[in-house]
Write a protein that binds this DNA or RNA. Structure first.
Length: 769
RNA sequence: GGGUAUAUAGCUCAGCGGUAGAGCAUUACGUUGACGUCGUAAGGGUCAUAGGUUCGAUCCCUAUUAUACCCACCA
C-alpha cells in the first residue's frame, strides 16, 4: 500500500484557532480523505508550536494584570506559569479541534518542546556549531524593548508614518569654517555620533574630509568621512553616523573602523548621554532634547516628515537597533544547497519558487538567540574560565571540558522559535508528499526546513509545496480583532451546518489566491447540501417503486458519472480544488438532480440509488460529514462505464420545445421518440393533433398550426445567428492565406454544420408556409 | 527603490493564439411526486489603457495605470 504523508503547520499555543487554520486544515483533510478513499495509507503529522516570544509575551501580560512580573518570579517559576498556560491553551485548542471535525487524531501530536524534539534541536545546534556555522558576536541587532530580546529581520514590520525631521547644526571645530547641517529623525541619538558622512561626489567632500565638527550640547569633535553609502540626494546629503544604533551607519562604521558608542539600553532607555536625558525612553528623550536645544540656543529646525518607521512584529513597539552579544547562524552554505535541490520540489503556485530562490540568493546571517526564558536553551556551556563548550548535554560538556558539571553554566539565551520549527519536517524519516501552508511563512518556516533538512539529514523533505491564500472578509480586508471583521469558523458551521464552510472554501480557492469570503457563498453551499439530502429523501421515500426499463437515461447518467469522475480526479491531483468542486457540484445538481431525477419521475430506475451513491463517493472528500450519513456502510458496488446513449437528443428536443412554450401557449406536441420523458421535461402533452411536422435531430415533431408562427419566431433568431456565423466563417475561409490547414479544416467543418442547420431551418420554413 | 502577482458580465472567478464561459445576482415565466425553496429561460462583456508581433491577440511582447503582497540601508 502506498503512503501519503502531509505535515500540519503547527498552530501556536498562544491562542485560539481562526478561519485561516480552518481553511488550511480543510485543504489537508480534503487530500487525506481523497487519498484514503483511493487506498493509500495516510499519515497526517500533527503538532503544536511553543511560539517563544509570542507565548512569553501573552503570559507576561497576564502576570502584569495581577501585578506580577517575570523578573520577580525568576526563570524557573516563570516557566511553570507558562506550563500552566500551555495546559489551558491546549484545552482551548482541543475544543476547537473537536468542533472542526476533521479526520485527524489530535491525541497523537508533537510539540516543539517535546523531549525528542529538544534533542533534535540540540543535536542540530551542536552540529552546526562544530561545523563553524554558529558564532557569538557583538553586533547591532534588532531589539524588542518590550520583550527585551533580539529579533530577526523577518520579525520586523514597517509602517509609513508622519513624524518630524530635525535639521541640526554641527559647528566646525575651527570656528572660521562654516557649519554643517544634518537632517535626522533621531535627534536623541546625537550622543552616539562618531562621524559625519558625505558622498565622495559631494562638491563639499574634498574640502571637508577629515575636518572635525562638534556634536551639539556636548561639543565633542567628530570627523567628516566620505562614503558612497551616503547618498547626496537624501536629506541634506550629510549623514550623522551612529554605528551602534543604525544598520546603515553600522555598515559605514565597520568600513571606516569607527568606534561604537552605545547609548540605548535593553529597555529602550538612554544612558551614557547627559544627565537630563539618561534614563528616559526614546520618545521622552526626543521631546526633551528639543527643549534642551532651545534652552542652549542650539540651531535647529523642525519639519513635517513622512517616512518608514519600524516596529516589532510581536509586541508592536518601535524597533531599536542596539549593541548586544548574539548568536548568529551563517546560512549561506545551506542556502546554496537548498538552491541546488529546489528544482525537484513542485511549488503551487509556481511563481513562488522564484521568490524562494531570490531570498536564498540574498540571504543574510540569521540571529538565532533570544533573550527570553521560554524556549530551547542553547546547548552552550561556559566554564569558570569562560571557555565555551558546545555539547548536547551538560554531562558531555563536562566530559569534554574535563571539569565537574556543577562548574558549568549554561547559556541563558534560548533559540528563535523558528530554529526548532526548521526541524519540523524531520519528525518523519520519509519524504512528505505535500506541505500545505500560508505564503506568509515561506521564509520563516518552509525555506528553513528545506535548508536544515538538506544540510543535517541530506534529504529534501518535501515533494510538493502548496501555498494557500488568506481568507479575507467580503470587502477583501484582512480579518483582525481590532477591525471586528473576524469570522469564526465554528459559528459559521453552526449557522449553516456541517461541511458548508468547508465546501465554500474549497470551491473558492481560485489558484492559491486570497479568498474573499462572503456569507452568501456559504449559504449557497448550504443549499447544495440540502439539495443532496432532498435527493436522498426522494430516492428512498418518494420515488415510484414501479420500475420500468430505462436504459437510455441510465446509460446517459452512467457516462456522465464516468467522465466527471475522471475529470474531478485529474483536477484534484493537480491541486485544482476549485475546479474539482465545481465539477462535482455540476454533476450532482445539474446532471443528476435536474435531468436524471426529473427523468425518473416518468421512468423510475432500479439503478437510480446506486448512481446516487457513486456520485456521493466522488464527492465524499468535499462533504465528508454529510455524505458519511447518507452513504450506507455497505452498498452494492456497480461498475461505471461509458455507454452508448441518445439522451443528448432528448435534451436538445426538450430545450427546443421549452423555447416554443416560452413564447406561446402550446399545449400539445407529438413525437415518437422518448415521448414520455420529453413530455415530463417540457410539461407539454404528447398527443397528435396536427399534421405539421418539423424535423429536429432527425426526429419528426408535430406541432399544432396555431403555434407554428411562434415556432417561426423561435427559430428566426437562431437563423439570424447562424447566417451571421456562416458569413463570418466563409469570409475567414476565403481570406485565409497563411492559416494552418488543420485550422481551416476545422472552420470548414463548422461551416458545414452551420449550413446543415440552416438547411433544416429552411425546410422548416417551407413547411410552415 | 527593486521584485512578484492580479486586472474578463453587477459580484466571485474560469478560459489563455483561431466561435467570450460558469456560478451567483437581475428580469420573465413556471412550480398537484423530493427541495431550510426549486425549475426553465432571457438580458448583460471594445476581456484595464496604448503600442507592437501575427493571416489572426482576451491570450505573446513592450510601456502605462490601478490593486495586493514580498524584499531593501534611507537620513
Amino acid at each position: 500500500m502506498k503512503n501519503f504523508i502531509t505535515l500540519l503547520p503547527p498552530p501556536n499555543i498562544t491562542g485560539s484557532l481562526h478561519i485561516g487554520h480552518y481553511f488550511n486544515w480543510a485543504l489537508q483533510d480534503f487530500l487525506i480523505q481523497y487519498k484514503k478513499a483511493k487506498g493509500y495509507k495516510t499519515e497526517w503529522i500533527l503538532g503544536l508550536d511553543h511560539a517563544g516570544i509570542a507565548t512569553q509575551y501573552v503570559v507576561e501580560r497576564k502576570l502584569a494584570e495581577k501585578g506580577e512580573s517575570r523578573k520577580e518570579l525568576g526563570r524557573e517559576k516563570f516557566n511553570e506559569k507558562i506550563q500552566e498556560w500551555k495546559i489551558e491553551a491546549e484545552e482551548l485548542i482541543q475544543k476547537q479541534v473537536d468542533n472542526f471535525k476533521f479526520d485527524m487524531n489530535w491525541n497523537v501530536r508533537h510539540f516543539t518542546m517535546d523531549e525528542d524534539h529538544q534533542k533534535r534541536v540540540r543535536e542540530a545546534f551542536v552540529k552546526l556549531y562544530k561545523d563553524g556555522l554558529i558564532e557569538k558576536k557583538l553586533k547591532i541587532t534588532n531589539w524588542d524593548t518590550k520583550c527585551k530580546t533580539a529579533i530577526s529581520d523577518l520579525e520586523v514590520i514597517e509602517k509609513v508614518e508622519k513624524s518630524k525631521i530635525y535639521i541640526i547644526e554641527y559647528k566646525a571645530e575651527n570656528k572660521e569654517e562654516e557649519s554643517l547641517y544634518v537632517a535626522t529623525t533621531r535627534p536623541e541619538t546625537i550622543f552616539a555620533d562618531v562621524a559625519l558622512c558625505l558622498n565622495p561626489e559631494d562638491p563639499r567632500a574634498k574640502k571637508l574630509e577629515g575636518k572635525k565638527f562638534l556634536i551639539p550640547l556636548i561639543n565633542k569633535a567628530i570627523p567628516v568621512i566620505l562614503d558612497e553609502l551616503c547618498q547626496a540626494d537624501k536629506g541634506l546629503g550629510v549623514l550623522k553616523v551612529t554605528p551602534a544604533h543604525d544598520s546603515l551607519d553600522n555598515e559605514i562604521g565597520e568600513k571606516h573602523k569607527l568606534e561604537l558608542i552605545s547609548i540605548i539600553n535593553e529597555e529602550g532607555k538612554l544612558y551614557n548621554t547627559i544627565k537630563e536625558l539618561d534614563g528616559l525612553t526614546i520618545e521622552e528623550a526626543k521631546k526633551e532634547i528639543i527643549k534642551i536645544f532651545k534652552e542652549n540656543q542650539i540651531n535647529y529646525e523642525e519639519k513635517e516628515w513622512e517616512g518608514i518607521k519600524k516596529y516589532t512584529e510581536k509586541s508592536g513597539v518601535p524597533l531599536e537597533m542596539i549593541l548586544t552579544e548574539q548568536w548568529f547562524l551563517d546560512v549561506s552554505t545551506m542556502a546554496k544547497q537548498a538552491l541546488e535541490n529546489i528544482e525537484e520540489v513542485k511549488f503551487y503556485p509556481e511563481y513562488l519558487k522564484n521568490t524562494f530562490k531570490n531570498w536564498m540568493i540574498n540571504i543574510k546571517p540569521w540571529c538565532i538567540s533570544r533573550q527570553i526564558w521560554w524556549g530551547h536553551q542553547l546547548p552552550i556551556w561556559y566554564t569558570k574560565e569562560g571557555e565555551i563548550i558546545c555539547e548536547t548535554t551538560k554531562e558531555e560538556a563536562a566530559n569534554k571540558a574535563k571539569v565537574d558539571k556543577e562548574e558549568l553554566k549554561q547559556e541563558t539565551d534560548v533559540l528563535d522559535t523558528w530554529f526548532s520549527s526548521a526541524l519540523w519536517a524531520n519528525l518523519t524519516e520519509e519524504k512528505i508528499d505535500v506541505l500545505i501552508t500560508g505564503k506568509d511563512i515561506l521564509f520563516f518556516w518552509v525555506a528553513r526546513m528545506i535548508m536544515f533538512s538538506l544540510y543535517l539529514y541530506n534529504k529534501n523533505p518535501f515533494k510538493k509545496l502548496y501555498f494557500n491564500g488568506i481568507v479575507r472578509d467580503k470587502n477583501n480586508e484582512k480579518m483582525s480583532k481590532t477591525k471586528g471583521n473576524v469570522i469564526n469558523p465554528i459559528e459559521l458551521n453552526e449557522k449553516y451546518g456541517e461541511d458548508a464552510l468547508r465546501f465554500t472554501l474549497l470551491k473558492n480557492t481560485a489558484g492559491n489566491k486570497d479568498i474573499k469570503l462572503n456569507e452568501k457563498e456559504v449559504e449557497l453551499s448550504r443549499n447544495f447540501i440540502t439539495k443532496i439530502r432532498n435527493a436522498e429523501t426522494f430516492l428512498t421515500k418518494y420515488m415510484n417503486k414501479n420500475y420500468k426499463e430505462n436504459e437510455n437515461l441510465d446509460s446517459w447518467i452512467e457516462t456522465k458519472i464516468f467522465e466527471y469522475k475522471q475529470e474531478i480526479e485529474t483536477n484534484i491531483e493537480e491541486y485544482e480544488f476549485q475546479k474539482a468542486a465545481e465539477l462535482f457540484y455540476d454533476l450532482m445538481w445539474n446532471h443528476y438532480c435536474n435531468w436524471y431525477i426529473e427523468g425518473l419521475k416518468e421512468n423510475p430506475s432500479t439503478k437510480a440509488i446506486n448512481y446516487f451513491y457513486e456520485i456521493l463517493k466522488i464527492g465524499q472528500p468535499f462533504l465528508p460529514l454529510t455524505i458519511e450519513k447518507i452513504l450506507p456502510k455497505e452498498n452494492k458496488k456497480i461498475t461505471i462505464t461509458k455507454k452508448e446513449t441518445n439522451f443528448e437528443k432528448v435534451i436538445k428536443i426538450t430545450k427546443f420545445l421549452r423555447k416554443i412554450k416560452k413564447h406561446s401557449d402550446i399545449k400539445t406536441f407529438y413525437i415518437e421518440f422518448e415521448e414520455k420523458l420529453i413530455e415530463n421535461y417540457t410539461k407539454i402533452k404528447n398527443e397528435k393533433t396536427s399534421n405539421f411536422a418539423i424535423i429536429l435531430e432527425q426526429e419528426k415533431i408535430f406541432i399544432e398550426k396555431e403555434h407554428i408562427e411562434k415556432v417561426k419566431e423561435a427559430i428566426e433568431k437562431e437563423n439570424k445567428e447562424l447566417e451571421k456565423e456562416r458569413l463570418e466563417l466563409t469570409k475567414k475561409i476565403e481570406t485565409a492565406k497563411s492559416v494552418p490547414n488543420n485550422i481551416v479544416e476545422e472552420w470548414k467543418n463548422r461551416n458545414k454544420n452551420t449550413e446543415e442547420k440552416l438547411e433544416e431551418i429552411n425546410q422548416l420554413k417551407k413547411l410552415i408556409k
